[in-house]
Structures are given as C-alpha cells and as structure tokens.
C-alpha cells in the first residue's frame, strides 16, 4: 500500500515522463523527414540537375532547370506584388489604425486569411484570373502565391512597427516632421530588419506551396519563361514525379525535395538570425 504522497509523486513522474516522450515524438518526425530527404535527395543532386530540363516519362537523365527557373519567376511575381501590399497594409494597421475598431477588424480578417487553406486561395485565383482569361498562366500562379504571402507580411510589419517606441514618433512630430516622412524615414527604418524577416518567412512559406499552383501556374514539361503560359515549378514537379512509377522521376523528386527543404531551412535560419540580432540590440 503506497501513501497518498508517494502516489502523487508517482503520478507526477509518470506524466512528466510522458511529456518528455511527447517532445521526443515531435522531434523524431522532424529528424526522420529531414534524414530521408537528405539520404535520397543529396545523392541525386548533380550538375545536370541545374543545366537540363525535366526528362520525358521513363527516360533517363535530365534535370530540373526549368522547374528551378519557373519557381524563381513565380516567387518573384509573388514578392513584387505581395511585399509592397503587405508592408503598406501592415503600416496602416500599426501607424494609422493601432487603436481604431476598424484596425482591429482588419487585423482579425488578416489573421483568418493567414490561416485560410492555400487550396482555397488557389481556387480564388482560378476564379478571378484563369477562368476569365481562359487559360492557365504563370502570373495567375504568382498572384495566388502573393495572396498567401500578403497576410504573413501584414502581420509581421504590424507587429514590428508597434514595437517602435512612441517616444521616437513624438520626437519626430515635435520637430514638425510630416507623418509620411516619419513613417518612411524613421519607423520603417527602425523596424527594417523585422519587416525583412517577415518577407523572408513569407517567401519560405510560399516556396513550398503546391496546392494553389494546381489551378493556376499548372506545370510545364518544357523550358518556358512566358508569364502568359503554364510554367514549370519545383513543387508541382515534385508532386508529379513522386506520384509516378518511374525511378528516374522519383529520384529527381527527392533531389528537388532536398533542395526545396534546404532553401526553406536556410531562409528560416536567416530570419531567425535577423530577429535574434534585433532582440539583442533592443
């Protein structure tokens, strides 16, 4: 017969043990997935991957050049649209609507948009661009990705600008600085690394997105840089090649996955380092 005290200690020990196991469980999957992409992916990376286009079904050789270039083009369109829109909207939230009801509503809706399924964003881009124009195109894919990037940038911009001390604003206003100059020259500058972090994290988020491209940019087996046509991109190629029965395609999918994961992890590390430096300075 154990005492009440001993039983409480046992329960405590047991449950804390479970918590440790849960943490190991979580980290275990990360390691497993990273290890798999490294093992199958790194061995398939070679020079031809960057100099040749995607091979035909069942054939050997080939590379992913068109997919890399296509992905970069899509990212470029998304950032060109999404970054300015996101920064401006975030600026409005933090500088002009920090204490207004409307600001709270916009912030709320932005958070919903941030978590909305990416497949829905893709269908939206299909409905407003692809369907009226009658064909799949690179720019519709870029717009879909921009719509996913925007809420990420809005949120970080908003948060970072609100961290800028009010005294800085008051000092500028006391000197007669117009508000637009105050924002562009002082608060934007004070939070530049934070805003940049937001954009980087947004890019990391969209560079692996596949679902929104299914209905917009589609895929292209050949080299194409035309914005008006379907364009090859890494995530769609990974999807198509991984699902295929051809071993050459599958190993190429692993190589693509490895490069995508390496790129995204790198972006995350850079973003973290930027934030870390910021926090130390503050």
């Amino acid at each position: 017969m154990i005492s009440r005290y001993q039983r409480r200690k046992l329960v405590n020990l047991f449950n804390l043990g479970i918590a440790v196991l849960a943490t190991i469980f979580g980290v275990f999957w990360l390691i497993w997935i990273l290890w798999t992409t490294l093992r199958y992916g790194a061995s398939s990376v070679n020079w031809a991957l960057f100099t040749q286009d995607t091979p035909a079904p069942g054939s050997s050789g080939g590379g992913l050049r068109n997919a890399f270039v296509g992905s970069l083009i899509l990212l470029g369109i998304a950032v060109a649209i999404g970054a300015p829109v996101g920064v401006l909207a975030g600026t409005w939230l933090a500088e002009f609507a920090a204490r207004r009801k409307l600001g709270a509503v916009v912030r709320f809706l932005n958070d919903i948009l941030l978590s909305a399924p990416s497949i829905i964003i893709g269908l939206f881009a299909y409905a407003i661009i692809v369907d009226p124009s009658g064909h799949f195109s690179a720019y519709s894919g870029g717009v879909a990705l921009a719509l996913i990037l925007i809420p990420v940038v809005v949120r970080t911009t908003d948060e970072m600008l609100r961290l800028v001390p009010g005294s800085l604003r008051e000092a500028a206003i006391a000197l007669g600085t117009p508000y637009w100059k105050l924002v562009t020259r002082i608060t934007w500058r004070a939070s530049a690394s934070g805003i940049l972090t937001g954009v980087l994290l947004g890019i990391a988020r969209i560079s692996g997105e596949t679902a929104p491209l299914l209905f917009t940019a589609l895929n292209n087996q050949f080299w194409s840089t035309s914005l008006d046509h379907p364009i090859a991109n890494l995530s769609m190629v990974i999807f198509q090649f991984a699902m295929s029965p051809y071993s050459n395609w599958q190993s190429m999918a692993w190589a693509g996955a490895f490069i995508a994961v390496a790129f995204i992890l790198l972006l995350n590390l850079v973003a973290r380092a930027l934030l870390g430096r910021r926090n130390r300075k503050a």
């Binding site: 990360l30 991984a242 995508a260």
Partner: peptide
Amino acid sequence: ELLAAIPSVIYGMW
C-alpha cells in the same frame, strides 16, 4: 517550429 516550415508536398512524398 521547423516541422511547420517543411512544405506539405514533402510531407506527402515522405
């Protein structure tokens, strides 16, 4: 947090 950074298509493939 990195678990959230891995793209969904790679979860699927894995």
